[in-house]
């Protein structure tokens, strides 16, 4: 049977409506799925913070409560009573800030030299630095440990800082930023009578500021969260950094209250979350720049 013209038109319109409906519902399903995943990503962190404010007796309560109930701030006091947490906070800041500052200095100098200065052997040296990017920490940790003990630095914060002051990745990263800066600025500065140091520190370094911010954020997160090297190099509680402190705290509290441990975890998150809030752009840029290298 032949369908009449208006009927055909209706069918087509109906078809289009169905298609649109399908597209819409697919889009809503997708958003719903993404939202569910985001809950899985954030959930453990929310649970950590709200449980850290619960009395020990309520800390294992099921069904889980997602909002803080008791505001039991004594858990936070307990962290400081159980382990030398003030010291460990200081240690973490000291190690992290020294490492970040040191890496910014060495990598800015080397990155600038590789990007903008000419000297015999430059390419060879650059590839030497790049080749070390492939070397895993594990392949160097034992000799570095022996070296650190020989020069009397074991169980000290310097053992963490000194080997971390140099960075192949940071050198590569900042070289990219210095290469993007226009050459002409140097000529202008030379005409004004500037010397080479001035050209580096006053002309090109400010232009590489986003790169410095990227390296600072990445180095801050990496060092603040570092666990393996501190575990190897440090022995005494008072010299620990925060991740090691949390590990001990978890051991002490095996049968006790998890709220206290989670209070420690919550405190350890504050600096990285702050850095993330203010430097998210740079963190993301850093991960993306790393990806473009491939």
């Amino acid at each position: 049977m032949q369908t009449s013209w208006p009927e055909k038109k209706n069918a087509r319109a109906g078809h289009r409506a169905a298609e649109a409906l399908l597209r819409h519902s697919r889009r809503w399903l997708l958003l719903l799925g993404l939202f569910a995943l985001s809950v899985i990503m954030v959930g453990p962190i929310v649970w950590t913070i709200s449980t850290s404010l619960r009395t020990p007796a309520a800390s294992f309560s099921l069904p889980p409560k997602w909002l803080p109930t008791d505001m039991a701030l004594e858990n936070y006091a307990e962290v400081f009573a159980r382990i030398p947490f003030w010291r460990q906070i200081f240690n973490s800041f000291f190690v992290t800030l020294s490492t970040v500052f040191g890496q910014l200095c060495t990598a800015a100098l080397a990155g600038y030299a590789f990007a903008r200065l000419d000297f015999p052997g430059k390419t060879l040296l650059f590839w030497l630095v790049m080749a070390t990017l492939m070397i895993p920490l594990q392949a160097t940790i034992i000799p570095v440990f022996v070296l650190i003990s020989r020069i009397g630095l074991s169980d000290s914060l310097a053992a963490l800082i000194v080997p971390a002051l140099f960075t192949a990745f940071g050198t590569f990263l900042l070289r990219q930023y210095f290469m993007q800066a226009p050459k002409e600025f140097e000529e202008v500065a030379l005409i004004d009578g500037a010397n080479q140091w001035y050209i580096f520190s006053r002309v090109y370094l400010p232009l590489a500021a986003p790169g410095l911010a990227v390296l600072a954020v990445l180095a801050f997160n990496g060092t603040w969260n570092e666990f393996y090297r501190p575990l190897v190099f440090l022995i005494t509680d008072a010299n620990f950094t925060i991740p090691l402190g949390l590990n001990t705290l978890k051991g002490y509290m095996m049968t006790g209250s998890i709220s206290v441990v989670l209070a420690g975890v919550s405190l350890s998150l504050i600096p990285v979350v702050l850095v993330y809030l203010f430097g998210q752009r740079y963190l993301i840029e850093g991960i993306m720049v790393g990806g473009l290298k491939g």
Binding site: C105, T106, A107, L109, A110, Y112, A113, F114, L117, D118, F119, P120, K122, L125, L128, V129, T132, I135, A139, T140, I141, I142, P143, V144, V146, L147, V162, P163, L165, F166, T167, A168, T171, Q196, W197, F200
Partner: peptide, 28 residues
Amino acid sequence: RKALLGYLFVLPTILGILVFTAGPVLVS
């Protein structure tokens, strides 16, 4: 001057990498 500055600038990184990365691999 630029060449000398270049060597001075890469010196810390090259030394650091030799002492704490490249050297230790060989020692391993």
